[in-house]
Every structure is written in C-alpha cells, then in structure tokens.
C-alpha cells in the first residue's frame, strides 16, 4: 500500500512538467500577446502608448524573448512558488487567485457534497425499485440533467426565482455583505445564496453519478453472493446496504479524480452568468485579455487538482477494495 502511494507521488512532478508545457503552449497559442490586445483596446478609445513604454513593458514581462526562454523563466518562477504578475491587474497572480480561492473551494465543496448526497440514495432507490414510476421519473430527470447545459439551467432558475418569488439570486452575497469582512452574519448570508449555484453546478454531476450508481448496483444485484446472502436470512435492506452498495460505490470513487477539477472549471460560465466571485470569471477574463501568466497560473492549479484528485481516488479505491489493496501491496 505504502509503495503504491509512493509510486504515485513520484509521478506527480513528471506529470506537472508535462502539463506545464501544454498549458504554456495553450495560453501562448492565440496570435499576438497581452500588449497587442492592450494597445488595440487603448487605440479603440483613442489613446495610445509610446514606443518606449511598450518596449519597457515587453522587457519587464519577457515578451521580447523567444517562446522557450519565456517558458523556462515562467517555470523557474513557478518552482520558486512565484505565480508571476498579472499583466492586466498589475497585481501578483497569487493574490488575485487567493482572494477568490476560498469562495471557489466552498462552492465546489457544497456542489460535491450535494452531488454525492443526492446521487447515492437516488441511485440505490432507482436500482432497487427498478421499472417503477419513480424509477422512470428519475431516469427522465437524469437525462434532462445531463443534457441541459448548466448555464442554461442557471438562467432558467434565476428567471424562475425572480418571476415567481421576486428573488434576485445572483452573486453569493447580499449587497450589504459583499465588501464586509468575514463574520457569522456574512456566513449565514452566504448559505442563503449558495444553494442555487450549488444546485446548478452540482446537477449535471448528480445526474451522471445517479446513472452510474444505478447501473453499478443493478450489475451487483444479479451476483450470486446476493442469492447466498438472501439464503442466509439477511433482510433485503441489510443485504443491499452491506454488499452491493458497497461494491457499487467503488467505481464512483474513481470519478472523484476528474470531478474535482471539473467543479472548479465547470463553474466558469455559470459563475459568469450568476456573477459569482470565484475563480471561474477570473479565468475567463484572463483568457479573453491574453493575460497569459494569470491564465497559466489558474490552469496549472487545475492540473494540480486533477492530479491530486486522481491520487485521492486511487488511494480511496485501494482502501475500499481489498482486491486492489493487496495486489498493489
């Protein structure tokens, strides 16, 4: 088990290097750079920068260097824990991200818990009450949940809340609390607002996970060990909870790996639509403005989360399933 984890840990830096090259290539890919789009913006408003300032800025951000040198400098800084300066905000990227990280994490956590808390019991119910009306209903809702883009759902729910209850449900805080320092009242205000984005962001995942849970469980319910358990006098409830559910959850655990980063990035459009102060809109803006070091920093965090998520799900899986645990011992 320990060796298994160590092997995984050794892989992390290698993966990060590969991802960093890909990320850099991506943020670097659009024609032009921050300065050209910045100059274009200024020009459209009638003002301009003189050549000297441009050259100075180019040099400061290393934009006058060849790409591979730019990459190496960026990596060097990353390794020192320096995420660089945002071209647009002229602030350290770490600070910009840090400001929004807390809310991003809270929202992701809520959405994640919502997904699991809903998906597992519904999946169990659906599988054990197969072909009942409720099962069909769940299936229909699931298909809808997977098919509707979540920003669309956000718009529909926002419109519904506004037209039916006169509620304006954008943002994560009431106006009074938006700039206020953290307090219990602000926390409560957050809870009052977070449920809608939580549902919007979590719903597609819930639908998908419910389907996976139902399918896994249906598979397990036909296994001979079920007959064996029934023949030993276990009640249906004891039987289903102890054996097949336990086995059906294993494949769900392996979805944590890709689900974690998706919760962060999947909220990008939703967050913009709903005006949530998390990382999503920051990334979107940095990509549009070619604020490449900020975009790069955020994307690297996503990659890191993906790797960590996979590691967590691998470890959980090994811990849950003795067949994996012992094989990899």
């Amino acid at each position: 088990m320990l060796r298994y984890i160590l092997q995984r840990l050794i892989l992390i830096p290698i993966l990060l290097i590969i991802f960093s090259i890909m990320v850099f290539a991506l943020v670097q890919a659009p024609p032009g750079d921050f300065l050209t789009s910045y100059i274009a913006t200024l020009a459209s408003t009638g003002s301009s920068l003189n050549q000297e300032t441009i050259a100075m800025l180019e040099h400061q951000f290393g934009l006058d260097q060849p790409v591979h040198i730019q990459y190496l400098r960026w990596m060097q800084n990353l390794l020192r824990g320096d995420l660089g300066l945002s071209l647009e905000y002229q602030l350290p990227n770490a600070e910009l991200i840090n400001d929004r990280l807390g809310l991003t994490l809270i929202l992701a956590l809520f959405a994640f818990v919502f997904t699991w808390v809903m998906a597992i019991p519904i999946g169990i119910y659906s599988a054990t009450h197969r072909n009942t009306i409720l099962d069909y209903l769940v299936t229909v809702v699931n298909y809808t949940g997977v098919a509707i883009p979540n920003f669309m759902l956000a718009l529909i729910l926002m419109w519904f809340a506004y037209s039916q209850f006169g509620l304006s449900v954008t943002g994560l805080f009431s106006r009074d609390f938006e700039q206020a320092p953290w307090s219990i009242a602000k926390g409560i205000d957050l809870l009052k607002h977070i449920w809608l984005p939580m549902i919007v962001i979590g719903l597609a995942g819930t639908a998908r996970l419910t389907r996976v849970m139902r399918a896994n469980l249906l598979d397990e319910l036909n296994k001979p060990y079920i007959v064996s358990g029934r023949a030993r006098g276990l009640s249906e409830w004891q039987l289903v909870m102890k054996y097949p559910v336990r086995l059906a959850i294993n494949p769900l655990v392996s979805t944590i790996g890709w689900y974690l980063p998706e919760l962060f990035s999947g909220s990008l459009i939703v967050a913009t639509v709903m005006n949530l102060q998390n990382i999503g809109p920051l990334l979107l803006r940095s990509l549009i403005n070619q604020d490449m070091y900020l975009a790069g920093a955020i994307l690297m965090i996503y990659c890191f989360l993906a790797i960590i998520g996979t590691l967590i799900s691998d470890i959980l899986l090994a811990w849950l399933d003795p067949r994996i645990r012992m094989e990899k011992a």
Binding site: P224, V227, A231, Y243, R246
Partner: peptide, 20 residues
C-alpha cells in the same frame, strides 16, 4: 433461511462478496 435450511449455492466461487 440459514438456521433451519441452509443453501450451498450453485456458484460457490462467487457466493462470497469479494470485499468482505
């Protein structure tokens, strides 16, 4: 079931849960 009549099931290899 189990106390008065017990079953040795047809597929004994799969009659145990693999994770218990």
């Amino acid at each position: 079931r189990g106390a008065e009549i017990a079953l040795i099931p047809q597929e004994p290899m799969a009659a145990f849960s693999p994770v218990h």
